[in-house]
Design a protein around this nucleic acid. Structure first.
Lengths: 184, 184
DNA sequence: GTCTATATGATGATAGAC
DNA sequence: GTCTATCATCATATAGAC
């Protein structure tokens, strides 16, 4: 892994552990082992690092979508859950939730990049829900985009809320969604 | 309103607009019209102000719960929605979501106070959902605490997510929850 | 690419006068 | 209760040597 990739990965972890405005170049400096001034060589301003972090998430999600293109809707749903399961396991939150609460403090470039990511996620979930409905794998009455929002908000918030309530609540929510989608 | 109350209310707004680590004593100073040093007279350290903000939310929620004690489950649900509707209208997020993403940077006193608030909220929603189920006003198969978590996570996250997608998505989520609870 | 050195400004916080 | 003055610390960012 290059130093640049190292910096991005670390920034990603810090953003989702502590929040965008709580992490500093000094945090990264200590972990990567280079001085803060050297970080500026790779990312002249902090917001460019923020953009790079989101771009990494976009690439990763696009790769998953592509890899699961021919999988069943249920398999795609399970993959979606597995992403958040990993987030939860690491005591992080998801990138959308973390940056959404800081949204009004973010540079325009970070804001618009985050919107791109959330749209890709929403479209993906909507698509495999719709497909699952057509194949009678899933049962729900609402529009697929609406159902996607319901499920995404459940996931996005449970990784936040379970920091206060109980780690096991993640599985409770996951199972409730599956039961609800596959009932009858 | 006293200066102290003024400070608390302003801090609350700033936390939910910009995040805990993004708001400063200087922000409050400018709005309240007193110097930052004077704020320290009321709140020696920032975390004490954070605690006071959450205590205000606890008092407010307790008052609502008490006021709606004899109301129908549906009325209590509508009241619950109205709280988040106001949050959404003001382009804020809820206090739990805002502080949950910054949780690992918060003082212990703020962390534990936030847990108290989330527990009160969860208990309230669980209780009126349970009552609604017994009275056949609501239809759902899961445990009331689970259903409460599903609904709370929908609300908590939609005020965040709709900053990226569409303001109208709040109403979409609200209606979906009601349709889901009152179907059959 | 990484370093040292530094600029510049904001931050939370304290001491003491009024 | 609020002020002025000040502090130590931390932040992002830049210039220029290696």
């Amino acid at each position: 892994m290059t130093t640049k990739e190292n910096i991005i990965n670390l920034a990603d972890t810090l953003i989702r552990e502590k929040g965008y405005n709580a992490f500093s170049f000094n945090d990264i400096s200590k972990s990567v082992g280079i001085k803060t001034a050297s970080i500026h060589y790779h990312f002249p301003v902090k917001s460019q690092l923020g953009v790079a972090v989101i771009e990494l998430h976009i690439e990763g999600l696009k790769a998953i979508i592509e890899a699961y293109k021919t999988s069943t809707p249920l398999e795609q749903l399970e993959k979606f859950f597995s992403i958040y399961y990993a987030v939860q396991k690491q005591n992080k939150v998801c990138i959308v939730g973390s940056l959404a609460t800081d949204f009004n403090t973010l540079d325009e470039n970070v804001q618009s990049k985050l919107k791109v990511f959330s749209e890709i996620m929403l479209n993906w979930v909507s698509t495999f829900l719709e497909q699952g409905k057509e194949e009678n794998a899933f049962t729900f009455k609402s529009e697929s985009r609406t159902k996607a929002i319901m499920i995404i908000t459940n996931m996005l918030a449970i990784v936040q809320l379970s920091r206060l309530t109980n780690k096991e609540d993640f599985v409770v929510v996951k199972n409730e969604i599956i039961n609800n989608l596959t009932q009858n």
